[in-house]
Simulated scan of single mutants.
Amino acid sequence: MGSKNKLKRFQENETFPNVIQPTREEIVSGFSLKGKWNTHFKNDNPIVLELGCGKGEYTVGLAKRFPNKNFIGIDIKGARFWKGAKTAIEEGLTNVTFVRTQIELVDLVFGEEEVTEIWITFPDPQIKYKRTKHRMTNSEFLKRYKQILTPTGTVNLKTDSEFMHGYTLGLLHGLGLEVLYANHDVYKNEGSPQEVIEIQTFYENQYLEKGKPITFIRFRVN
């Protein structure tokens, strides 16, 4: 993507009513919407996050499927989720918002037990050991998720990485956390949740064309 195109998208994001771009200082010093996201959506519907939402395809897809829930896509790269934000506006989806921030600040953006569900779709598996701290299902991230999730809240991991799938399962079992569902190939096994097989991202389609299996885990951190 050229710099001019990126700049145009950044400028458009500033005009979108469904895009919020707080500074790190605003979040660290006390984010105004923390614990008050119901005032943003003007309802008390459950809040669902997609962390590392990329182009926002899953956030928008889930919002269409579950109109009685509110969906928030989070990514540090605003030029990426511009597409999802624009699509949501064009399709009149009022239950979609995108927040430009770093995922490690998620517990400062949302209040205790404010979120009912988290989706992590096709994250970078960070295979090298020295990159363990950046894996989005490592123990430190799980602690952050626990702070913002309701007691029965769930985390969903959808990935093409067998490494990420295995790493996460091993960690969950080691911590004694509840695994609600786990599948090494969601398109070849019956019983996969419909929202897992019916919503596909651009990159997911590329993986499928190459014959890569798509894995999925649904679990609790409380």
Rank of each mutant, 00 (worst) to 15 (best):
L49F: 04
D107P: 09
G30I: 01
L175Y: 13
N13I: 02
E162I: 13
K86T: 07
F10H: 11
P123Q: 12
T23E: 11
N38Q: 13
E195D: 15
M164W: 00
K212E: 14
V109E: 00
K146G: 07
F81Q: 07
G35C: 11
N18S: 11
N45W: 08
K158C: 03
I74K: 08
K36W: 02
E162F: 12
D75I: 12
Q11Y: 07
D185C: 14
E209G: 11
R131P: 01
N68T: 12
L51E: 04
R135D: 01
L172S: 03
G176K: 05
N68D: 15
K64W: 07
I72L: 09
I47T: 03
F16C: 00
Y58E: 04
V221W: 02
I72G: 05
F31W: 10
G166A: 11
W119S: 00
S139V: 15
T154M: 13
G84A: 08
V155D: 01
N95F: 03
T154S: 14
G191W: 08
K77F: 09
G35M: 10
N70A: 06
R100G: 12
F216H: 10
P17E: 10
L171Q: 02
T132C: 07
L49V: 10
R9L: 09
L172Q: 00
K143Y: 05
L149V: 10
L149K: 00
K143P: 11
R9M: 12
K34H: 06
G56F: 00
S3C: 07
F202E: 15
R65E: 13
M136W: 09
N95I: 02
Q102Y: 12
V155H: 03
I89N: 04
M136S: 08
G78P: 00
K6I: 13
N38M: 08
F163R: 03
G73V: 04
K210Q: 15
K133C: 09
R9Q: 14
W37E: 03
A88M: 06
V96G: 04
F31R: 03
T150H: 09
P213E: 09
E204C: 11
K143L: 14
A88N: 04
P22N: 11
K210Y: 08
E114Y: 08
L177M: 15
L33C: 10
A63V: 10
V19S: 02
A88V: 08
V221Q: 07
P123S: 12
M1T: 13
H40M: 07
Q147D: 13
D44R: 11
N45L: 13
N13G: 03
K42C: 07
N45R: 13
V60Q: 03
T101W: 04
K133H: 14
T116W: 03
E114I: 06
K69P: 05
L33D: 06
N13Q: 00
T121G: 05
T215C: 15
K133M: 14
N13H: 06
T39I: 09
F81V: 06
T121V: 15
N95L: 10
Q194P: 07
R131V: 00
L33A: 10
M1L: 12
R144P: 08
K64S: 09
F216C: 02
L7G: 05
I27T: 10
L51T: 01
K8G: 05
T116Q: 15
G54C: 00
Y207L: 08
N43P: 10
L33Y: 03
I148D: 04
K64Q: 14
M164Q: 03
R218G: 12
F16H: 05
G111Q: 00
